[in-house]
Design a binder for these strands. Structure first.
Lengths: 140, 140
DNA sequence: AAGTAATCCTATCGCATTACTTGGTTTAGA
DNA sequence: TCTAAACCAAGTAATGCGATAGGATTACTT
């Protein structure tokens, strides 16, 4: 039930970007150093975030990364979904995807997993990057 | 973020025991067949549950497993804790264990993980085996 | 034009875990 | 004594994780 380093690194790095972006792209090396994360591993994490449309890259000297949207419009759920996959405890409670469990009708544990999944989803979708970067202004 | 088969099998099997125990021990083979789970794998799952004190074994012919406590007093959290380890999204929000993260003081994501962890803990500790076995009588 | 600082890409690697299988030993009721 | 059950130990294929390595490409600055 643990979130992997990929998800934790990614979330911390995006908060770092909110705090350290001063109208200019933030280079990966600076993030890695501040956060104490292997730069080359973080590279792969950022590739995922970029392909998910959460950040944009600016190549070349004086380049770096910028958020693709304002931090008030990026939820923790979006970030973890990209890095960790669906945020549910078990496959069978994903809606949309036709995850077929032939026992769904008779499974007594499914409603429990659904309830847990919903509670997790609430927290993840109601917390934005802005909330994490400015804890005092948390809206909740 | 997914719960493994070990945890899902264990939870389903314990609910199965609540439903199918008629004042006599429930043999593993019967559970495995009803639930469609490999019997020899389930054996290992039950060894963990037994060592955790959640079930008792009765050896020999006409033996099987029984719950160690009434189903109203066994929470889903206890079962998953035994099978999956601590039920938190990241190590640093476990209380009790001195999980040392040298960044705890400056980590902006830690309060978020704590909030998520608390929400998960609420669901897990407030749902009992009885709730799952008799959905109509759910207390919540 | 050259230098440089950055992103980008692909491959590899050790390690741990998961979900299982195999092949037994021991226990206790009929 | 037969038998049905729990118990135990070892092995195994597949997967993913966290990280490393080595380069290719881009674009700004001098």
């Amino acid at each position: 039930m643990l979130v992997s380093s990929r998800g934790r690194y990614g979330l911390r790095s995006m908060v770092d970007m909110v705090i350290n972006a001063k109208n200019s792209p933030v280079p990966l090396r600076a993030i890695a150093e501040r956060q104490g994360i292997s730069e080359s591993y973080l590279e792969q994490v950022f590739a995922i975030l970029r392909k998910a449309g959460l950040i944009n890259a600016i190549r070349g000297s004086y380049g770096g990364y910028v958020l693709a949207k304002p931090p008030t419009e990026i939820t923790v759920g979006e970030i973890l979904l990209a890095l960790e996959g669906p945020l549910v405890p078990v496959d069978c409670v994903q809606d949309g995807k036709n995850v077929h469990c032939e026992r769904r009708d008779i499974c007594l544990t499914q409603p429990f997993w659904k309830e847990l999944s919903d509670k997790i989803g609430e927290v993840l979708s109601s917390t934005t990057l802005q909330d994490l970067a400015n804890p005092d202004h948390k809206s909740i």
